[in-house]
């Protein structure tokens, strides 16, 4: 619980911070990494435990890689963050969502996929990291 209140404190600081501080918060090395292994390393992801408690709702086949809607839900206790990767994108890290006490570990968003790839999710819960993946076939690529 202490960790969660720490996270919430961080969120408060972030919300009140001026724009320059915002820019400094963005994890540039992770987002600019060209390989998924490097991206996860820059997010300080340690050992990844495969978990079916990460539910991925996404199409088997995407007509247009420019817009692929995905839904991610974590049923893992004390989920603090959900990171989204597309392994075969030029920069695999898509997003990292961090949840405070008032939010459920659930997100729906639309992503770009350059080609057929695994969609990989990494959930942070305390000091542990869990992962699940789903392959999505892309018929027309969407990365400009």
């Amino acid at each position: 619980m202490q960790r969660r209140s720490f996270l919430l404190g961080m969120l408060t600081m972030i919300a009140l911070a001026p724009i320059k501080v915002w820019a400094a918060l963005w994890n540039r090395p992770a987002f600019e990494a060209l390989k998924i292994k490097d991206a996860t390393q820059y997010l300080n992801v340690s050992e990844e435990i495969p978990s079916g408690d990460i539910v991925i709702v996404a199409p088997e086949r995407a007509e247009n890689g420019a817009v692929v809607q995905i839904e991610i839900r974590s049923n893992i206790q004390n989920t603090e963050a959900i990171a989204i990767f597309v392994e075969n994108n030029p920069t695999p890290l898509i997003a990292n969502f961090m949840f405070g006490d008032g939010a459920e570990p659930f997100v729906v968003t639309r992503i770009k996929m350059a080609e057929t790839s695994d969609l990989k999710i990494v959930v942070k819960a305390g000091s542990q990291y869990f992962t699940n993946a789903k392959n999505i076939t892309v018929l027309e690529n969407g990365c400009g």
Binding site: L11, F31, I94, A95, F99, G100, D101, V107, T109, K112
Partner: peptide, 24 residues
Amino acid sequence: KPVLQAQWGTGIAKNPYLTFRLKG
């Protein structure tokens, strides 16, 4: 009160769409 914070890269689609859920 902050409830959600996200960092995004260039892989979020144009005109970003987002659904999230709040408790309480």
